[in-house]
Design a protein around this nucleic acid. Sequence first.
DNA 1: TATGAATGAGCGTTCATTCAT
DNA 2: GATGAATGAACGCTCATTCAT
Lengths: 186, 186, 186, 186
Amino acid sequence: MPIQKVTKEEILTKSLEVFRHRGYHNTSMNDLAHAVGLLKGSFYHYFDSKETLMKEVLMSVNILLQEEVFPIAYNSNLPIQERMETMLKRFSKTVFNKEGGCIVGNTILETVNLYPQFKEVLQEILTGWTNALTHLYSYTHAPENAKKLAEQSIMEYEGAIMMAKLYGESYYYKDCYIRTMERLKA
Amino acid sequence: MPIQKVTKEEILTKSLEVFRHRGYHNTSMNDLAHAVGLLKGSFYHYFDSKETLMKEVLMSVNILLQEEVFPIAYNSNLPIQERMETMLKRFSKTVFNKEGGCIVGNTILETVNLYPQFKEVLQEILTGWTNALTHLYSYTHAPENAKKLAEQSIMEYEGAIMMAKLYGESYYYKDCYIRTMERLKA
Amino acid sequence: MPIQKVTKEEILTKSLEVFRHRGYHNTSMNDLAHAVGLLKGSFYHYFDSKETLMKEVLMSVNILLQEEVFPIAYNSNLPIQERMETMLKRFSKTVFNKEGGCIVGNTILETVNLYPQFKEVLQEILTGWTNALTHLYSYTHAPENAKKLAEQSIMEYEGAIMMAKLYGESYYYKDCYIRTMERLKA
Amino acid sequence: MPIQKVTKEEILTKSLEVFRHRGYHNTSMNDLAHAVGLLKGSFYHYFDSKETLMKEVLMSVNILLQEEVFPIAYNSNLPIQERMETMLKRFSKTVFNKEGGCIVGNTILETVNLYPQFKEVLQEILTGWTNALTHLYSYTHAPENAKKLAEQSIMEYEGAIMMAKLYGESYYYKDCYIRTMERLKA
DNA sequence: TATGAATGAGCGTTCATTCAT
DNA sequence: GATGAATGAACGCTCATTCAT
């Protein structure tokens, strides 16, 4: 009887890590298969192509964010500051990683011109993130300003993770966090 | 003298464009050669490897910036605002491109963990940029703050170019410009 | 089980033949693959480089000699003359071939300065051969002389195979056999 | 006015050295050109192909041997022993080299099956050598035996140079010299 | 004569993918 | 479900050779 060595979820989780570290084009199906303890051929029982796999990786990230991270911003039981803080921490844990950077940013820069299916998901992620931040900033700022502040925070975060990767330092990222919190104050 | 179809400079310029659009790993030597009107093999008269070529592309960008762009910030004949404005425009023209994004940011995210030689040059570029901005902000802010503002501007710019690439819109980038100018005021 | 067109052993055997005929550098992976009925790329399931393949070819020859040919010299159930005769014939069948010459000699001359891993195996082969001959000559000669006679026989054999290749004649080789046998007599 | 940087002779001498060290197929036209201080393209003013060049290298060796080395064997002004001794030394200086081995032996094993033009010259060389040795041995042995002894000496020499190359030792070669001299005695 | 840019075929190797078992 | 052998195209790179200057 066929034994199942891994679940689709495990593959997605491990693949996310490998893609984040090595980038899309520089990661081979072999790399991914080995990372999850399968042989190359077995991979194709779960995903019919490298593109499909990457798309599903991105989608699983999106689902996690939309279901468990962004909703925090709309949880009216918590104070605004706490919502922001918690959300940022959960967000970071999901998409950032000091060594490999941000799977979202990495994938945008590397693939967005080449793979429209990736673009869709990536846009959903960033739109969800923007909306969540906009919502929080709306408590203390005019709607138009709130949106701009949200975008500004996101851009800074992505820039910060880039600097962190380049210099091997994390303070860019911390400064960014502080400014994002500061902006919550009227 | 043998017939010369291209100059090394042309190769660097065209290669920059191809790398920016397609990324490092997804660009083949064939792509590059065709872009300059040569055959793959002929390329190796100018560069002895893809890595060397990319490094020289990055170095040529660095030299241009260090010699012609960053010095603008230190030109005491011009008012500060004008220095900032001119420098930002020249900088953008050099490293940004709406379709392909920023060669610096793209290359950091895709290769910095893999190619230490690239990292060096990329660090020089970002350090030069940071210093130039810090210098300008120093006129109106305390030294420590000036540095933070410079870094913030850079991070925003890199984030903005990412958003521009993802959504095909350029207003992120314009907002970023406005904020960078605003920060010049005490 | 996937369809298997060849075994690793078959590859080694066929590759030995191709290397012997065409030499190491003049043999392409394509040549080798076609000789065993595979495509170039498929070869890399069995060997991860041309060097590795050649090394394994040489090692398989070494193992065959050490396990099945040289032991004949030490088989005290047989008369000395018969041991020598049988061993030489088995040896010839293993490493010589009128058209391509001697895989050992060919590879020494072509690669020994360039590939230390090959050198090791080739030395083991020649040392084994020298020892076996020395052992046989020891029955009728003083130890020091026995070693010299062994070396002399080996050198003659390698020279003979070279002459045979150059002139397309095999009598050099036969003379060599006769002299090697003659030397057994006190 | 065109300056001539090298003579054809120099090219042949330098190329001989490179071919001896690196073998025929593993030597590139670039290697050869650099060894003589020319650029690749300039080489083709002297030789219209790599094959032609190698053939001329071998021919120049042949001419040297036929004109200056083998005649020593027929010089009736000198005692036989001295003729042999002088000839062997001159021969060694011409075709052997401890590091690279024997250009004749190397080239036979690597190319004789592939390049008939090389074979011709190589046969001439070995025939000339055989004749010279046969002539000397004829003084003390019956004609038929003299020929066999000549061949035996040659084979040993080629085998000895192979062993020397494999083990990095030169005593094989010296033993060979001693035996070749010994055989001169009735 | 010497150059060096250009060619085009071929090299060793890697890859995403297929599929019989 | 998992294997691993096989494919065929593509990769980065090297090569012998050509030829305008």
